[in-house]
Design a protein around this nucleic acid. Structure first.
Lengths: 331, 331
DNA sequence: TTGAAAGCGATACCAC
DNA sequence: GTGGTATCGCTTTCAA
């Protein structure tokens, strides 16, 4: 029920607190059987050390803060899951702070985290070319950026947009598709430009790129544009996200164009709830966000333990999640 | 940049640490100007008290734990946002722990939270008739359940399914719809049964309820069933979630049935990304998850401060988010 | 009005 | 091998 302290263990075992401490932490020299007995007693009375006290002593709280402005959580949650997974074994817990785009709220949360002596902070966002509305430089704890613009000379992780676009394009080409189009989001996103460039590198410099918005409706519109023209139609469409892809697929079906027989469609994000429900289910580029989170967790912990990590932008590879919207292959 | 302590403030102000402490906490009697001066000095050198030390003293960490098995986060994130919002002003931070359905993982996280002396725990899930895979009874800290089955005699919050179904049904009736159908999820969900019952109470005991799965494809299938029969077709469809509604809308359009002119469709969850992208955008029941989170936060904090809260199941009202899929009204 | 000292729970150094 | 004691940063009696 109440909190049992190390004194309780000492009393129950008939030894001193320092002996108990050493026994439980496998420190110092002592009779192996004394150690075993003390451990047993501690377990019996359900003793668990107070992390606050240890933290005070070690100047370490075994806690890290995760800051995000992604309210919807499509990016944050997988990242969070990865972070947590990487840290739970080390006894590290994660504070999640959603700060929207409010600088004041951001400062409040960062201050609260620092007060609580977090060992480090992971900042995550929705895009690599925007930073959170709060200054994280010069903090007394290490900061790792994931999917958001970091301070210069910081460690920043993101997924490799060019590589992701490359494998998507190559997949379409590998299926024998010849007339590829890339239907994507607004050009002011760095990731849009990066993916488009890679798309052209793989599909040929003359391959067409249509920029619009991140919405299903833009997928419909793009199909209307493409099929409204005279001449040959595309046989492979690489979309900038799964919502656009969903719109494209629906628009094609409504025109009587068959997916994947006539046209292969591929998405980006591998947002399961979207990709699985598409008709047919959508092949999509997966950014490995969970792995990105694991890496962020490992990195911030290493930094907190004083290890030196090379600063700079690290791009983690994407992989392809194959479903039925491309045909051929393993589908 | 290191950590400035209360000793630093004392030295800088030329007083003792106890005086500083009293000054900053507005405790004890002291010259009003001394107090002001000390506060100023503290601010100048950027002093912030170490929460670990205070926690050790007060047996309070100003931290709560949020436990969830909702990996996808559609429910957890809004709840989390509400919890955080309710607690940030009180200086309370939130540990987020995703435990999937793994009892071992659950125990690890709960133990870690207790070690860190959380002031309380909020347990959230995906449905009110299933409990998390971890026993939270008999813990030394208060527990509030939100959207998951709680221990007997605990405080449990959930949304009012019957009331939500009621306002949806009434809305359809108010628009003059006469032949209502409810297309919903699996009958083993308590919320499915509760909503269906309320639907029948409002629409008439003979009103039809079709149970299936929580997927778009079931929406298509249900429409095929309904329109495949001889006789009059429904003119109002209340769906158990937004995915089903989306499937229903798409299926109707593909049959040439107009929404909302011929049939009004209403969803449940008000999952914006789904509801906004539907064609037409979907009117949907909103469970006010953020408010539920706020209430959970307030409640667990009150409990942590020793206040007495009436145990039992509290149902929070839903509201209708009106878009265009029903026609009439304000659409 | 201010300061010295005890103590929150745990660890580690140094005697014995 | 084992136990006393100082210490982490802060708050709170109690004395001066």
């Amino acid at each position: 029920m109440g909190r049992t302290t190390i004194h309780d263990v000492a009393r129950a075992a008939g030894v001193s607190v320092s002996t108990v401490s050493k026994a439980l932490n496998d420190n110092g020299r002592m009779a192996v059987e004394t150690r075993a007995r003390i451990k047993q007693v501690a377990e019996d009375i359900g003793f668990r050390p107070n992390a606050l006290a240890r933290g005070l002593l070690f100047n370490r709280s075994f806690t890290i803060g995760l800051l995000t402005n992604d309210t919807y959580g499509r990016f944050t949650l997988p990242v969070m899951a990865g972070v947590s997974e990487a840290l739970v074994d080390k006894g590290v817990s994660v504070f999640l702070c959603a700060i929207e785009d409010d600088p004041a709220l951001g400062k409040i949360h960062v201050d609260a985290m620092l007060d609580k002596q977090v060992d480090g902070i992971i900042a995550t966002g929705k895009r690599i070319d925007r930073s959170l509305p709060v200054d994280l430089s010069g903090l007394p704890v290490p900061v790792v950026y994931a999917f958001t613009e970091g301070a210069p000379d910081s460690v920043t992780l993101t997924s490799d947009d060019a590589q992701g676009a490359g494998i998507a394009t190559d997949w379409l080409l590998g299926l024998g598709r010849q007339r590829l189009v890339h239907v994507t989001g607004p050009q002011d996103f760095a990731s849009v430009r990066e993916r488009a460039m890679a798309f052209r590198m793989h599909a040929g410099a003359e391959a067409e790129v249509l920029c619009g918005v991140w919405a299903e409706r833009w997928g419909h519109e793009a199909v209307a544009q493409l099929w409204g023209r005279v001449g040959e139609k595309p046989d492979g469409i690489f979309c900038g996200n799964d919502q656009i892809a969903r719109g494209v697929i629906d628009a094609l079906r409504e025109r009587g164009v068959r997916v994947p027989e006539d046209v292969s469609v591929i998405g980006f994000d591998n947002w399961e709830i979207m990709a699985d429900q598409a008709r047919p289910p959508l092949t999509s580029v997966d950014m490995n966000l969970k792995e990105l989170g694991r890496e962020a967790g490992r990195t911030v912990l290493a930094l907190a333990e004083g290890k030196i990590i090379e600063p700079g932008l690290r791009k983690l590879p994407c992989r392809l999640a194959v479903r039925q919207s491309c045909g051929g292959g393993s589908a």
